[in-house]
Amino acid sequence: MDHYLTLPGWGLAVFQSLLYIALAPLLVGWVRKVKARLQNRHGAPVLQAYRDLYKLLAKEARVAHTASPLFRAAPYIVFTATWMAAATVPLLVVDLPTAAIADIIVLVGLLALARVFLALAGMDVGTAFGGMGASREMMIGALAEPAMLMAVFTLTMTAHSTNLSSVIDHHLAEGFILRPSYLFALGGMVLVAIAETGRIPVDNPTTHLELTMIHEAMLLEYSGRHLALMEWAAQVKLLLYGTLIANVFLPWGIGRGMSAAALGVGLAVVLAKLAALGAGLAVGETVLAKMRLFRAPAFLNLALLLSLLGLLSHVILEVGA
């Protein structure tokens, strides 16, 4: 462990974390753009997400009379927890100190922390929409979290480690191997990512003022910089899941070591992978319709089943008896 707790390591970790919050709006803008083109629209520029954030940050925040202090603290907590979770996922290079501070179970825990505060903030003002969003979010979270952990456990059982850096290292060292368990875990993970980031078919990110909304319903009372932080956190979360899928299941290209070349290649490759994933997401959102809320448990059961089959096929097919 001590070999990567070095000063350049910490510096790189900080740089990578900053890159997360810097890149997150770009991914969202890209997905929106691709989606618009698929639907024969021009769409807003890719950089629109940055402008939205800036505009929100510059506006005054309006807070309901009935809100408690928790309402004003929640955006900071949600943003911080999501950002910290993202910081533990290797983006450009492996073997950074952040991966040692928090392994993948801590990552899931930090995301859960963010979710709990998001739901609490939704219930704080005391409107019907807020409670509705919180209740639904917690149900979906409750079903998605075990599926995510199972998918993750499949990976960690192979690599014998819950440290993301070690997992990626292990895969790179092993070379290309067709593992049935990875296929299932990948499927489960993609479904979980869709549910957790509130994309179609579970939730509609562009919805507003609908009885079907989940994420949006909890943010209804937010405005100004509070809303900006909440939106930003959601964007970081999308980037986090994208990176998790791109770098853990297809780790090739990620930098090993601290040279400038490794960093450059790492950045280029991860951007390409994320662009492809984002385009895939846009295609999926275009061809699918949103499900009824009570179809979501079936969707997440499928995710859980995939992850579980991943674990079982790991045990049955991949380990020598």
Partner: peptide, 25 residues
């Protein structure tokens, strides 16, 4: 015998078999 020691074709067999199981579900 662990999976890592198998040639790629044989790994493919395992993957396909696993998907057959999934389709049963």
């Amino acid at each position: 015998m662990s999976l890592t020691l198998l040639p790629l074709l044989q790994q493919l067999v395992l993957v396909l078999a696993a998907i057959v199981l999934f389709l049963s579900f």
